[in-house]
Design a protein around this nucleic acid. Structure first.
Lengths: 356, 356
DNA sequence: TTGTAGGCGTTATCAA
DNA sequence: TTGATAACGCCTACAA
């Protein structure tokens, strides 16, 4: 394994010159550059990332931190999309993106990750996905002045974040259900300690209030954003309610698919008996039965933008926090009661079949 | 951000002593150790990973390399399980495990990963998942003497690997279909350049031959291990075959779920009209309709064992290659024609509902 | 345009 | 048991 020093010797120049060539510094003569590049090519020289990082005080690695168990993260298509957007933008800017993973219970996880990757300076900055209102790691990051960007706004800290306006989005979705004439609209939401869950509930509440209704607590359940969680929540709500809802707002598409399944298993027709509105705009909702109406958010772009924002932050450390809101829209399909099965606007139908 | 040097100053000892404390070297007096630990705790000192790596020539990071697009990897439950096993064992041994991700077309990907992570010494070793027969990266790893472990045997290189005996497993599964009396048994397989696909085909062929039959080429299709791929492959086989199969061997459970869907959409009953045998033993097959019979392989253990093997290799660089085969078994459920819907043996049914 | 020299924060090798 | 003192491989002024 060659070192920069050896390359310099072989090319008959100094270390600095090789370093300049490697880093694209223009202050090198064509002749010298050529000789160095020649040697690099011949010997497959690749600079040692650790030495580089130690000297330059940056690793060009960005961490993606999801304070959930590895299993959940890796299977949920939402995270898959976020990650893809993140990796793509990172790579283009010369950064590697790595998922910060640890095993153990979730309280521990954040702690261990903090030690292992952040304080040890393994990554230059982190993108934090789906944080809770009380996220102890945030305070530490701020205290250590460690660069980070949140996916999802924070209610009471001034930090960089990328998000959709979850309150407005939820309000729009529920308003659409109201336009259809539904009046008993239930909600199946994520864990109540997550900011997105709070925001989406607020939007739901607001839409109802604007129409002169008020939420019925017996039609409100918190779940966990998983398919099985949605299934259980819906089943439970039906079992415990003599007076069932005529429409459901489900704050995540994966959960919504579980809800559709639960309704199907109970012999309840969608949308005739109960309408359903999801949230996310995942591709797999196009092949559900019936096709799921949902509030679309640009997930890949969220991942991409968050990394983009972090890179800006890394390269201009003392600029003030940026808040970016990305657009959402209601995808009116079958499950809300709309007649059409074709999507308006952006969503395309790739060669995807066979989902239930 | 404290350095080791500053800790030494605060504790009134030399850098070496601090280093020893940090690394658990016993050759430190209790008094000194105590003082140092005190300072470390008070100031939240964490050693700099880069400096450490540079000096010790190891990062304690293990890379997980899947030569596929990020999207596929992150959504497929097979990889999710492998990764979980890998992270768990790695963490326990003091290693971090990171997924090596790059965007771009797959030929490029391996190349870029090689530069960015391996030659630059960002990781101590790699686990390679699902490699093709022709995997140029293998030759380079061997040439560079870079430590790696394969998940899946290699037909003509002597390397460390962890695998199940895919030929025997496939043979066992198809033999079971034959026991049911099926005679026209088709196969939907993965990409033909993957070693696992070749091996599973061999097993399929062998079972038929042992029973005195020979494979019908019109009942053999290569697909891509995805659900939609399975759906398309099954649909196509039915369309192009006047004489349909009475059973299908599908070499991946995710594909098999697509196959079930395709059969359902065609109004074909499983197992009455066509039986189906999958491969993998994924949890989601427990909630398919009908419950999928499948050849179970211990996926998490495969991930775990591969990292374990790699760590051994890292710590004993010149031991000779180890080949580990993990056990498989046929999970006889409904879709192969077995009457029972309960699994024999290991598979448990966690609180999982609502899958279709 | 090029080279020199110091430093990045550890580990590792010797002496003491 | 402890402490100097080199590495480790690169970057970055600064000087030439």
């Amino acid at each position: 394994m060659l070192t920069l020093e050896q390359v310099a010797a072989l090319a008959g120049v100094s270390r600095s010159t090789v370093s300049r060539v490697v880093n694209g510094d223009p202050r090198v003569s064509d002749a010298a550059r050529e000789r160095v590049e020649q040697v690099i090519r011949e010997h497959h020289y690749v600079p040692n990332a650790l030495a580089r990082g130690l000297a330059s005080r940056r690793t060009r690695i960005i961490g993606l931190l999801v304070a959930r168990s590895v299993g959940v993260v890796l299977t949920d298509p939402f995270f898959a999309d976020v990650i893809q957007g993140a990796v793509s933008v990172g790579n283009d800017a010369g950064y590697s993106v790595t998922i910060l993973m640890e095993t153990g219970d979730s309280a521990d996880i954040a702690d261990r990750i903090y030690q292992r990757f952040i304080r040890s300076r393994h990554v230059d900055g982190v993108v934090i996905v789906s944080s809770a209102v009380e996220e102890p790691i945030l305070d530490r990051l701020i205290e250590d002045q460690f660069p980070f960007v949140l996916i999802g706004r924070h209610p009471n800290k001034v930090v960089d974040f990328v998000d959709v306006d979850n309150r407005a989005a939820a309000r729009d979705g529920v308003a659409h259900l109201l336009e259809h004439g539904y009046r008993r609209i239930g909600i199946i939401n994520g864990p109540p300690d997550l900011i997105v869950a709070v925001d989406r509930y607020t939007g739901y509440e607001r839409a109802l209030q604007e129409a002169g209704y008020r939420p019925d607590p017996s039609l409100s359940v918190n779940s966990d954003f998983t398919r099985s969680g949605g299934y259980r929540a819906m089943t439970q709500m039906l079992a415990e309610n003599a007076n069932p809802p005529d429409a459901m707002f489900v704050t995540g598409d994966v959960m919504a698919l579980g809800v559709l399944q639960a309704l199907h298993d109970q012999g309840i027709r969608v949308p005739e008996d109960i309408a359903v509105m999801g949230f996310d705009g995942l591709e797999e909702t196009l092949v559900s039965t019936p096709v799921l109406s949902t509030i679309h958010q640009p997930i890949r772009e969220i991942g991409a933008t968050s990394v983009g924002t972090l890179i800006e932050l890394l390269e201009h450390p003392d600029r003030s926090p940026i808040e970016r809101y990305l657009p959402h829209y209601v995808q009116k399909r079958r499950s809300c009661g709309c007649g059409m099965s074709v999507v308006t606007g952006s969503a395309s139908l790739p060669g995807e079949h066979g989902r239930s």
